[in-house]
Design a protein around this nucleic acid. Structure first.
Lengths: 122, 122
DNA sequence: CGTTGACCTCAACAATTGTTGAGGTTCTAC
DNA sequence: GTAGAACCTCAACAATTGTTGAGGTCAACG
């Protein structure tokens, strides 16, 4: 029987409040991101969310991406490249990071180009 | 549909439609930016807007800044450093460009830092 | 002049990115 | 076994960044 690489039943998972406390992202924003499909959670028997620790990476990335002008929809499309439901591997993260770095750099390059072309009228 | 490039730079005055056509920014967006104080115009006796050519630089900058995550309010504060009502000098533009470059770069640095710290959940 | 397209103002709507509150449930600690 | 904190859903509101439309004006060509 192949040992599937997921899920430790001994690990209770982080509550939404714990995630908010650790990440600095508000509870309402976390729920919103989840509704938009940027992050996901398991539910307890009582319907409460329980997060795995990769959510912390995702939240940090979401914030940083927003700061460089990506919309949540764009971040969502990028994150969709990550394997759903499973803990992303180092390789997964690296590929994603590379894409985001490239996108952000192209935006700043464009800004620099515009600023270089700036000249007083006449 | 009249005056092509008339020689008269004594009363320059681009119409809002001409500015939109040349810049690719919509008429409604131009009016909106003006209402927010990012750009300004003279008015004809009949209350129509007439723009000086520095508006083209401002519009290009606004778009590029937005792409790297600055809000209109932030762009507006930056532009406020430019002399109001007068054609900005080369020095004015340079100082502004430097500030915006610095801000944008700090954002991309932050993103890169986050991406570097990204790791699969242990 | 008169027509016509570009312009004006103002208000309503819309997408994005959340926050706040009401009303109800779950979890934990005593 | 119960009090209270933390959680749940859903809806309403809010700021930002515009677009669209109604109703009216301006200007240039013929």
């Amino acid at each position: 029987m192949k040992q599937d690489t997921s899920f430790d039943w001994h690990e209770p998972g982080l509550t939404i409040g714990q995630v908010a406390g650790r990440s600095g992202v508000s509870v309402s924003a976390i729920r919103f991101y989840e509704a938009q499909g940027l992050i996901s959670s398991d539910r307890t028997a009582g319907n409460q969310r329980r997060y795995h620790s990769d959510v912390m990476c995702r939240l940090a990335m979401i914030e940083a991406c927003q700061r460089v002008g990506l919309t949540l929809a764009e971040v969502g499309r990028a994150l969709a490249a990550l394997p759903p439901g499973q803990a992303p591997t180092s390789t997964d993260w690296d590929a994603l990071a590379e894409r985001l770095r490239t996108e952000a750099q192209s935006r700043i390059d464009r800004l620099n180009q515009v600023l270089r072309e700036l000249a007083p009228p006449a």
